[in-house]
């Protein structure tokens, strides 16, 4: 009987000690902020398009890290982003919810534009230039192709044009594409 008690006491004492240590550690080394959200945000393409159902890339990143939102909701990022997210978060890759969208730019039909400035307000990255009652134009290098300016335009003068590949940004194709499927 005494050996039982000794065993119980020894183990109990050790457990008390380690429990206290763990309790202390959990209070003392609590991680402030959320570095994983930053990392997710880093991967997202920053189009701020909201096609994921969240009002921008940062909110989507927060939703992924905090609410466990799905990682396949970003059409502009496509499969690349999904796979990077899967790698980062150690989740299973899942097929995209929507079809991947080719990169495109907003183009304002300058003949139709009435200069209402509604699109300027909608643009999340200030890529549209113009003033009230004057024709607007899109700064091509800054447009993220988010399509947020399409809806507010009262005269439907904005269209999305896919970005054509030209010689300067052309790169060699995947050689496996030509591999004869034997």
């Amino acid at each position: 009987m005494s050996s039982m008690l000794i065993a119980a006491l020894v183990i109990g004492g050790m457990a008390t000690l380690f429990g206290a240590l763990l309790g202390y550690a959990s209070v003392h080394y609590k991680v402030e902020g959320d570095p994983i959200t930053d990392k997710i945000d880093q991967i997202l393409p920053q189009t701020q398009c909201g096609q994921c159902g969240y009002p921008g890339c940062r909110p989507y990143a927060e939703a992924i890290s905090n609410e466990g939102a799905a990682i396949n909701l970003c059409p502009p990022g496509g499969e690349t982003v999904m796979v990077s997210l899967a790698d980062l978060l150690d989740r299973e890759p899942v097929a995209l919810e929507q079809e991947e969208r080719p990169p495109s730019l907003a183009l304002i039909d300058e003949k139709t534009c009435i200069g209402c400035t509604l699109c300027i307000q909608a643009c999340p990255v200030d890529a549209i230039l113009g003033a009230a009652k004057l024709m607007h134009t899109v700064i091509a290098t800054e447009c993220t192709g988010c399509e947020l300016c399409l809806a507010p335009c009262p005269v439907d003068c904005i269209t999305m044009e896919p970005i054509p590949t030209d010689i300067t940004d052309w790169s060699w194709p995947d050689p496996d594409m030509f591999k004869v499927a034997a």
Binding site: D41, L44, P45, Q46, T47, Q48, G56, C57, T80, P124, V125, D126, A127, E142, T144, D169, S171, W172, P173, D174, P175
Partner: peptide
Amino acid sequence: RYAKGVIRGAKQEQNRADEARVRH
């Protein structure tokens, strides 16, 4: 050549995203 293209493209993409984030 393909790998170089993909890496350059990804870097460009990352730069664009970073700029877009700052502007946003």
